[in-house]
């Protein structure tokens, strides 16, 4: 199965590629995980850690970091405006694609995801180290955060629903049907109502991933999203899940692997929609 024929292959690098660029000064490898100890337990040599909670989210509001905070994050990790950033992480790259997505809010397009993430690197028996690298500080200059291209807010989602726009709910079938308010094995996360946003199709994120954490082939992805579920590259599509992390995986697949131009991730997702007063819900 080739991975070279994806629509935007520059957004995906292999474990081999990363192994060959460990000492490349123009490349910064970034690990983003759910498990807070995983990076400290051993990471790809030279990789820095960016934490989805403490680094990417605002500490008070439910929102992402500001332009100034992003500049500080990049500068202290030795990332310049020209640095090619490669993300990888646990959970089949959920948090890696989430971090990649947040970087796109600030227009850092010199970025890619390592296909297979941490799981594949480990399966291949490649080197891990506990040595935390240190890089000279940079003076990163970010552009103003631009949410509208890749991020959807609740009012936009409601307008999208009213105009019968395309929606993909990437949660588990039980969550989609409203039988569960959270993914299996995960806790209740404070949603008062179960179900899905009207008109959404349920395509669990995991259908786009192989057992080794890599993305499925272009042909398999086309079959899944286009032949089986009727989506097409010209559509304006909104993806969502519970808090926007699993749906960033699908957002990445649609945007970079299949080449769809108008895909937005609704990070408010079900923890917002399932609590909103008066919005429509389907079961």
């Amino acid at each position: 199965m080739s991975t070279q024929n994806y629509a935007r292959p520059e957004a995906l690098v292999s474990t081999d590629w990363v192994a060959e660029h460990l000492n490349d000064p123009d490349v910064r490898i970034v690990e983003s995980n759910e498990d807070p100890l995983l990076y400290s337990s051993g990471h790809i040599p030279g990789a820095v850690q960016i934490d989805w909670v403490s680094d990417l989210n605002d500490a008070v509001r439910r929102d992402y970091l500001s332009k100034e905070q992003f500049e500080e994050l990049m500068s202290r990790n030795g990332i310049s405006n020209d640095t090619f950033v490669v993300f990888y992480g646990d959970k089949n790259n959920w948090w890696a694609t989430y971090a990649f997505w947040v970087f796109q809010l600030f227009g850092h397009t010199k970025a890619a995801v390592m296909n297979g993430g941490r799981k594949k690197w480990e399966l291949e028996g490649r080197e891990l180290t506990r040595e935390v690298p240190s890089y000279p500080r940079t003076e990163y200059k970010a552009q103003a955060r631009t949410d509208y291209k890749v991020r959807a807010f609740r009012d936009q989602v409601l307008a999208h629903v009213n105009s019968h726009g395309a929606l993909i709910d990437v949660r588990s079938p039980g969550e989609f049907r409203g039988e569960l308010l959270h993914m299996p094995d995960y806790p209740q996360e404070g949603s008062l109502r179960g179900g899905h946003i009207p008109g959404a199709k349920n395509i669990p994120w995991s259908k786009a991933a192989n057992d080794d954490g890599t993305f499925k082939s272009l042909e398999e992805l086309r079959a899944l999203y286009e032949q089986e579920n009727g989506f097409s590259p010209d559509q304006d599509i909104i993806t969502y899940c519970r808090i926007g992390e699993r749906s960033s995986h699908t957002w990445f697949v649609l945007t970079y692997l299949l080449g769809y131009n108008n895909v937005r991730n609704y990070d408010g997702s079900w923890t917002e929609w399932g609590n909103l007063v008066g919005v429509p819900i389907e079961k």
Binding site: E34, P36, W52, V53, M183, Y186, P187
Partner: peptide, 13 residues
């Protein structure tokens, strides 16, 4: 032990 930044999913597990 793990701090308040542990995700809800990880914490519940």
């Amino acid at each position: 032990l793990f701090g308040r930044n542990v995700s809800m999913g990880k914490g519940a597990g």
